[in-house]
Write a protein that binds this DNA or RNA. Structure first.
Lengths: 240, 240
DNA sequence: ACTCTTTGCGAACACTGTATCCAGTACCGT
DNA sequence: ACGGTACTGGATACAGTGTTCGCAAAGAGT
């Protein structure tokens, strides 16, 4: 066999025989996360991460069978930032919203998470713990297990949308910002032609709302609006 | 200036002077879409698309300034497949669901659409037409324009999730399927350890539902379940 | 007919992920 | 104690990738 089968998580981190590894998955993942936080997911190349920890590029493949594996490691590393200690309060919607706030915080710390395709990442142990915790918040709710799962997936998806539509603190990559601006420019020229009546009013409405939330405590208003939207979606999915 | 500024859509397709272009954006986009349909988005490289239309790799850059531009072209090309002729019926929820069915159909024909990051693609003219049409379906509904926009974005996002969680007809790439299987394997070993009670019941429930929809007319049931979920989400967002 | 702009393209650059091979090392079973 | 074994880190190489540059040819406008 060429590669030891299965995901990163099934392979033992340390081999039975042979010299002690010089690095570790955790250290590699941390380095990769740091690079992604600072320069975006595209900057996370095997060579870059290897250089960051002082290793040769090919050495990483002793810890990881592919770049996808590395990204699995990164994703699970962020899942470790959840606080899963707070038990269910009995108000499942509030609990879910609170969980949403955690997700949002983590997404803001690691904006590259929004670039991941959720179902291409193999969930690691910490991610599965988060999933278990999320479901535990809904344990007392009388709903089919499938609906609960859907609601949790939805929670993540909606928050991803929130984060994406939020102007990045330090604007992602310069090229990305340029593309965004180009898109806005084209939209303006199309709207100026006068067709697209409904789109025009929607765009101006959204622009007004965006300008309103430019202030600092206006960010709270935006957050409140997001909470309201989340409540609607979740209670639409799970509510009676 | 190095590059003519702005998105693909603002630049004129044909230059005023000089020889007539040998190819066209439409033809390039069509070739790229064909490649993506058959072999996935990763197979869409400049060299590949160029070869497909019988051009040299560097020639594509006369029509497109980057691969991102090419993908903009591809995305907008799929938007042309919408039927925007059917006017609003007065039942906005039904109209939205019908629109959802169109989205779903297009996503099934072009599974790579699920790999796109929606807000990194600059919407082209056809996509803006679809947006205008979508909003027109909600014209008579008394709701803030922003909420309507959110609902439409949500509609697309939910359907993307549907499509992703659907076993691909001809399974995407072989490597992708292998990773999926690896993930399932790891999940099984974790669940076997006995912790993750809630996750265990959820997973078995989803597996049972998945097995049930293996049959042919059982696919209709799944579709019905999706419609129900969509209705809940949308009426949760826009309903009174 | 002449000029200019634009086209198509060969070649090259700076990357990327990854496989292969090799020397050295530390454990295991004897 | 000591092979043999299984591992480690790494140098090198390969097949791709997106993209740029410079240049010959060719069509449109004057």
């Amino acid at each position: 066999m060429k590669h030891p089968a299965g995901s990163v998580w099934q392979r033992p981190e340390r081999a039975a025989r042979g010299p002690a590894p010089e690095y570790s998955r955790a250290r590699i993942a941390a380095a990769a996360v740091a690079v992604a936080d600072a320069e975006g997911l595209a900057a996370v190349s095997m060579r870059r991460v290897a250089a960051e920890i002082g290793a040769a590029p090919a050495s990483l493949y002793r810890y990881v069978t592919s770049r996808d594996d590395l990204i699995d490691l990164m994703a699970d590393a962020t899942s470790a930032e959840f606080d899963l200690s707070r038990p269910a309060t009995g108000e499942w919607l509030d609990d879910l919203i609170r969980l949403g706030h955690q997700i949002r915080g983590i997404h803001e710390r690691h904006r590259w998470l929004a670039d991941l395709t959720p179902d291409k990442v193999i969930p690691g142990p910490r991610t599965l713990d988060v999933l278990e915790y999320s479901l535990s918040l809904l344990a007392d709710l009388d709903a089919p297990a499938q609906a609960k799962m859907e609601a949790i997936v939805m929670l993540g998806a909606v928050i991803t949308i929130f984060v994406r539509n939020q102007p990045a603190g330090t604007d992602s990559t310069q090229a990305d910002a340029q593309r965004r601006a180009a898109g806005a420019g084209y939209l303006a020229t199309v709207l100026a032609k006068g067709e697209h009546r409904h789109l025009a009013v929607a765009v101006t409405a959204m622009a007004a709302a965006g300008a309103a939330s430019a202030g600092q405590d206006e960010a709270q208003k935006r957050s409140a609006a997001e909470d309201r939207l989340l409540r609607r979606v979740l209670s639409g999915l799970l509510g009676q």
